[in-house]
Design a protein around this nucleic acid. Structure first.
Lengths: 241, 241
DNA sequence: GGAATAGTGTCTGTTAGACACTATCTA
DNA sequence: TAGATAGTGTCTAACAGACACTATTCC
């Protein structure tokens, strides 16, 4: 750790190389392509789900991959991700967050592609059947099922998408306690149990409801509506403060 | 929030555009250039400092910028950042962390450049005069001085580098309490006051030393060495556990 | 001794986890 | 009535901030 480069020859070589790259006219040299991949989450079927696409062509034909596409010359990566999201889910105004940029030269066997990965959180209620009905290859997977299958080696994802997925999960788990991302996955009005389900799915563990209630209550406002599913005592609906 | 696209015409147009971008042969179309910018921190002169370069050429001639360079066609962005770091500081085996990718089409007035920003933490003891002595345009700025000047509008950085800097600060502040980044800025053996200075500089606030001591002590091992600066009671040197 | 920095011990208010209990609905 | 989910109250252990105090050095 912290070794100083002592070999002057080596250093000079490095410097020359660097100066060359810094001063060249970038237009003249070969460039990597830039794409985005997007990890889209929703809450549905009382679990956290992620959208994936079964690939119809090589490479990784038949494997699952996150939706993605190239970044146009006049758009930001955010715009490209947003475009992709609109195409797959048909939903606007969703939570979109940059995750990480993946750049290993051999990550795509076809050519050099640098991918800027994003994560999106959509409300299931905003999704309709239009999205994906021309694409039988679109799948919503249970996040914790997928995590288990990856852990057991029962499934492989295309490209480096397993690493992208792990980054997304890590980000979700890291932020759910002290940001408002949980609210991005449910309706404007919700019961505390619904909110708790989101946390439980993200963290993949059961929470004690009295304690959960106590910690989230300061961020909520009561409504005068009650749940009407008629299964047991009706839960009150709340809104974000 | 959460509006569903109702205009079918609009949707079709979006789909066509997306399919086009997804299916084209990327090699045939114009691509953005990809570069890295790197925010290098050190502890020196009992403050946290950041390395910047005074630009000798337009655009932003005379402005301060972070060192950076293009990503080669056969290297990852990490490798490019590492190369840049080696060129500027002459130090190997440092802490290097990806920050964020900046991609607004007009962020560089010359051409379309997407920048993958990195943050590096180096030990001042590993730096020698060789780095930068052919470059009078290399400056080590006090981080909190720079933050103040930016806040007051007394200084402008080149390109979008103010945003890059803010990202780096945010990351440092967010991680210093629960990761080991503070140790990356000081020697293997250090006094608790030294460690405390790092925290104080990153957070830009004074900490109470008895409480600080208590919280870091479980992560440390005593050595049998003492500080010899002869200013007051000698402090014990510690190592990371 | 006084100034300066290192280091110890203690009090207090906040918070998270565990858990016992009550409330209100369906069937 | 039992079963299920909603919701309340309380105990405790861990922890962070504040602070009073002691220890060791230089001048």
């Amino acid at each position: 750790m912290g070794d100083i480069v002592k070999d002057k020859e080596e250093l000079l070589k490095i410097k020359e190389e660097a100066d060359f790259l810094n001063n060249y006219d970038a237009q003249e040299y070969e460039k990597p392509s830039v794409a985005t991949d997007i990890v889209i989450f929703r809450m549905a079927n009382s679990r956290l789900e992620v959208l994936m696409i079964r690939r119809k062509n090589p490479p990784y034909k038949g494997y699952l991959a996150f939706p993605g596409g190239f970044v146009g010359i006049d758009e930001s990566t955010e715009e490209a991700a947003y475009r992709e999201l609109l195409e797959e889910t048909n939903v606007k105004d969703v939570y979109l967050e940059q995750l990480y940029t993946f750049s290993k030269p051999d990550r795509d066997p076809r050519m050099r592609i640098i991918s800027v990965a994003y994560m999106a959180l959509v409300r299931n209620i905003d999704l309709n059947e239009m999205a994906g009905d021309d694409a039988a290859d679109v799948v919503w997977l249970g996040v914790n099922d997928l995590l288990r299958d990856l852990e057991n080696g029962d499934i492989d994802l295309a490209f480096d998408h397993e690493i992208i997925f792990k980054k997304a999960i890590e980000r979700m788990r890291g932020k759910i306690d002290y940001t408002d991302i949980a609210f991005q996955l449910i309706s404007d009005e919700f019961t505390i149990s619904e909110l708790q389900r989101v946390h439980e799915e993200v963290l993949n563990k059961k929470l004690h409801s009295p304690n959960f209630r106590r910690t989230v209550l300061p961020m909520l406002i009561e409504t005068d509506r009650y749940d009407e599913s008629k299964r047991a005592r009706p839960a009150k609906y709340y809104k974000r403060k």
